[in-house]
Design a protein around this nucleic acid. Structure first.
Lengths: 250, 250
DNA sequence: ACAAATGGTCTGACCGTCTGACCGTGCTAG
DNA sequence: CTAGCACGGTCAGACGGTCAGACCATTTGT
């Protein structure tokens, strides 16, 4: 191999610049992966009914054939079962798939660890960077919490509150990641279970009123741009909810 | 819409769990993107000869048809020219391709803010939770950095180092989010530009050797489980790289 | 002048995907 | 009880992206 170039662009080493490998992810494999993840995390709970193929096709904006192919994969993995005309998540997931032994408590712990890692600095940043209208909006939102709020209203409001504060931090990437965490939290069985515990209404009521108070403090720190107070309040709030959720799981 | 569920699995809101969009990146579009990046960063310098289509096809492990399709794109963008039997990078790149309006500095700032938010606590957790084999592995990895490492080797090693440390934190969700951030960083043109700046080799060399030293310190703190030191080193390291990248952009 | 390298063009095949249709079955509202 | 409907199962046809070749014309380098 003659190296006859005289000028400019010798590559130095072997002359070959190396490229990233070309990825060939197929549509159905992506769908399979996404569904599998929802199943493993319990968002699609064992025994629950799967969305219909047509529905999935519409949501993914993809042909039903592709969804079916993905389903075949899950079927043969044993994580999805067909009964009659319906598809269900398998009652007992094969061990091959599920390799997290005592998932639930760990899962909740991880969720809140992640939330703490993100939420405290994000809220702190937001407290510094928010404009006046955002501050007013958050104060307003915090005022709408009552101790005796309907559960589903509380959930909606709770989520809106956190999202609103976060979006004042001015960093779209952080907001996106934080959104993913909130998504998993609000979709998780465990969070559902915590708030819709029929046996323990008084406990639920306490959680709601505590959260209302915490949001009030956060909103205050937010309105005044007090960063240390913001960090303290947020940390306490996340810690308290995490504690309640872990207790609920025992 | 009646809320007739009494027990378990009410999904709360609209009942529809929403999925990530399915990506449909074609082989040729990926090739086009990779070539374009090499051209913009100057790795493929203006006026330099392009590798032959057959050669590219072999490197990408792809049919020549796909390479040609990518080339057509670059050709019509005006960043590649055919002269006689040869392809060359255009002498003067069309402005359309070269300049991102202004978002660049913001983008980099946001990327590193996010990285700092995640990386510092993740590395701290990892320092506490890692097992012996992970500690040994990280020490080993840090030792493989030299001041005069090949750029592409450095990138690979750099990424592996960060990924390896992070995966010792024991929280899959955190690892996943951190992975997304690293992805964006390593895929970004800006990072590419920083490390493959042909005009400024000495600066690049300084960055590489600084990073090598920083990784050494991090590995040490990691090996001994010194959490405060770990936080300090990580914060400094991220800050330094961020600074270098912002400087490069001016 | 000649051989090698390169781009241009074409072909046949394969696969993943889309579209749209039709079938049988089981659930459910009238 | 029955008709309608939602669902999974299946099929046929088309299309685009990709691959592996082959062949040609031209340029390049010796």
């Amino acid at each position: 191999m003659p190296d006859s170039e005289l000028a400019s662009e010798s590559r130095g080493e072997s002359g070959a610049l190396d490229f990233e490998p070309i990825s060939r992810e197929t549509v159905s494999s992506q769908i399979r992966a996404q569904l599998l993840r929802r199943i493993i995390t319990g968002e699609l709970a064992p025994g629950a009914r799967m969305p219909s193929e047509r529905e999935l096709a519409e949501q993914f904006r993809v042909a039903r054939t592709s969804v079916r192919e993905a389903m075949q994969g899950l079927l043969s993995l044993g994580v999805v079962e067909r009964r009659g005309n319906r598809s269900f998540v398998a009652e007992h997931l094969p061990d091959v798939v599920v390799d997290q032994p005592d998932g639930r408590k760990d899962f909740v712990a991880q969720l809140f660890e992640t939330r703490r890692v993100l939420e405290v600095p994000i809220f702190a940043l937001a407290a510094v960077r928010a404009d006046d209208s955002a501050r007013a909006q958050v104060t307003d939102l915090a005022d709408r919490f009552h101790a005796n709020l309907d559960i589903s209203d509380f959930r909606r409001l709770d989520r809106e509150f956190h999202t609103t504060v976060a979006s004042a931090c001015g960093n779209p990437l952080l907001i996106e990641l934080y959104g993913k965490v909130l998504d998993r939290l609000f979709r998780s069985e465990e969070f559902d279970a915590l708030l819709s515990d029929e046996q323990n209404r008084s406990e639920v009521r306490r959680i709601v009123s505590d959260a209302a108070a915490a949001h009030e403090s956060i909103a205050l720190a937010f309105a005044t741009g007090d960063i240390e107070e913001m960090e303290r309040c947020t940390r306490d709030h996340v810690g308290a909810v995490a504690q309640a959720m872990v207790d609920d799981l025992i």
